[in-house]
Computed example of a mutant assay.
Amino acid sequence: MSIAKLGAVVVDCPDPVALGRFYAELLGGEIEDDGEGWVDLKGVPGAPLAFQLSPGHVPPKWPSPEESQQFHLDVTVEDMDAAEEQVLAIGATVLDAADRKRSWRVYADPAGHPFCLCAC
């Protein structure tokens, strides 16, 4: 028996609308902006995502043994190369794609949060 259920994964960022749009392009769904620094991503299977205004947001450094990456999302894709092309087109940056034969590659969203494309 659990104590609670997960309500949402909330991501701090400097521009919740822009980051919400990025993840809507990546995962599907629609953003719902409350106009006060909070954006929900609606209509996506899995744990709900929300984006919260954080004016002092400092992106994680990846990889960095001295600092935490804070969190990262793993997203599953069918075609790694096609997905890479698409996420780069919507504003992601490559953090680690050195070993192109492995089943995952690491990128940063526009606010600097790491996420992995996984063909697992």
Rank of each mutant, 00 (worst) to 15 (best):
D15A: 08
I90A: 02
I3F: 12
Y23A: 11
E78F: 09
P14G: 14
Y107W: 08
L73N: 08
L53M: 09
G7C: 07
E36V: 01
L95I: 05
W104I: 08
E84C: 09
G112A: 10
V39D: 03
A8S: 15
A111I: 13
D109T: 12
E85D: 09
L88Y: 00
K5M: 14
S54Q: 05
I3Q: 13
G112M: 10
A83P: 03
W38S: 03
L95H: 04
A97L: 03
A89H: 01
L26K: 14
E84L: 07
G112N: 11
C13Q: 06
S2D: 15
G20Q: 14
D33K: 02
R100V: 02
V77N: 04
L27R: 10
R102N: 02
L49A: 01
G35N: 02
Y107S: 09
V75T: 15
V106E: 13
R102P: 00
L53E: 08
G35Y: 03
Q69L: 14
V75N: 10
D33S: 01
D79W: 01
P110L: 07
G56W: 01
R21L: 15
L6Y: 10
V106Y: 12
L26V: 15
S68I: 05
S54I: 00
F22Y: 15
P16T: 07
E84M: 11
V77E: 05
E78I: 08
L6Q: 12
A98K: 12
E32P: 02
K42F: 00
D99Q: 02
T93K: 14
S64W: 05
V77K: 05
V44S: 00
Y107M: 10
V58P: 01
D99C: 00
S103F: 07
G29L: 06
L73Q: 09
D15Y: 04
E36C: 04
V9T: 14
D79G: 00
G7P: 03
E84R: 14
V39F: 05
P63H: 15
A108E: 12
A8E: 15
K5I: 11
A83F: 03
E30K: 15
P65E: 13
A4C: 13
Q69V: 12
H57Y: 11
R100W: 01
L95S: 06
S64H: 08
E32N: 12
L41I: 03
G112P: 07
L95V: 06
M80Q: 13
R100C: 00
K5Y: 12
G35V: 01
P60M: 06
A50Q: 04
A4D: 14
D40L: 05
A18Y: 12
H57T: 05
K5W: 06
W38L: 10
V75S: 08
V58H: 02
W38Q: 04
V75W: 07
S103C: 02
H72A: 06
R105E: 08
L27V: 07
V75P: 08
H57D: 05
H72K: 04
D33M: 01
F51R: 02
I3R: 11
P60G: 10
C116Q: 09
I31Q: 05
W104Y: 15
F115R: 13
W62C: 10
W38G: 01
